[in-house]
């Protein structure tokens, strides 16, 4: 019973996710592409929630749909790209490269799923995906990558300040 409801909810998120992701690529206007990306992030978060990974789902919305997309939109709106500029870029070559790359990934994923055979799902413990469980993993098993990432972000912030200060 729960499986069937889960399938419906999965489709409810997955189909719009694919449509929105296609919209990011197909949209002519960069703002429309960015908006499709926001929609895609939200539907992706829905799938995370379905996988009982609430923290990841809402981190994703907060960081990507909230902060990063706002910066994207800012940049797009301030740059005011025109169609002429878009055609000057080597769009054709990029499109072909994208098609080849995407179909390659699709083939690998399809083959992997085919070879995995029948998957026996394991029930996750009650604490799975909670803030506590993720925090425990982050500060024990993955402490080094965590600290390395924060150092990387610090370098990025200092770099941004240096670049901005030169112009002031």
């Amino acid at each position: 019973m729960a499986d069937r409801a889960e399938l419906w909810i999965f489709l409810l998120f997955a189909i719009p996710l694919v449509i929105a992701a296609a919209g990011v690529v197909a949209a002519r206007n960069p703002v429309n592409a960015a908006m499709s990306l926001v929609a895609a992030f939200f539907f992706l978060a829905g799938i995370y929630v379905l996988l009982v990974a609430h923290l990841v789902a809402f981190l994703q919305i907060l960081v990507y749909a909230g902060a990063i997309m706002v910066v994207f939109l800012f940049v797009i709106m301030l740059l005011q790209l025109h169609d002429q500029d878009m055609q000057d870029a080597k769009l054709k070559a990029m499109q072909w490269g994208g098609i080849i790359g995407a179909s390659g990934v699709l083939t690998v994923v399809a083959l992997a799923i085919q070879q995995a055979g029948e998957i026996h799902w394991k029930a996750v413990p009650e604490s799975f995906g909670t803030v506590k469980a993720v925090g425990m993993l982050l500060f024990t098993q993955y402490l080094l990558p965590f600290e390395a990432t924060s150092l990387l972000l610090l370098v990025a912030i200092v770099g941004a300040v240096v670049v901005a200060k030169q112009r002031i």
Partner: peptide
């Protein structure tokens, strides 16, 4: 489980 955090993230919309 992520209550407060949920509010801060959806208001991003």
């Amino acid at each position: 489980n992520v209550g407060v955090f949920y509010i801060t993230s959806v208001t991003a919309l």
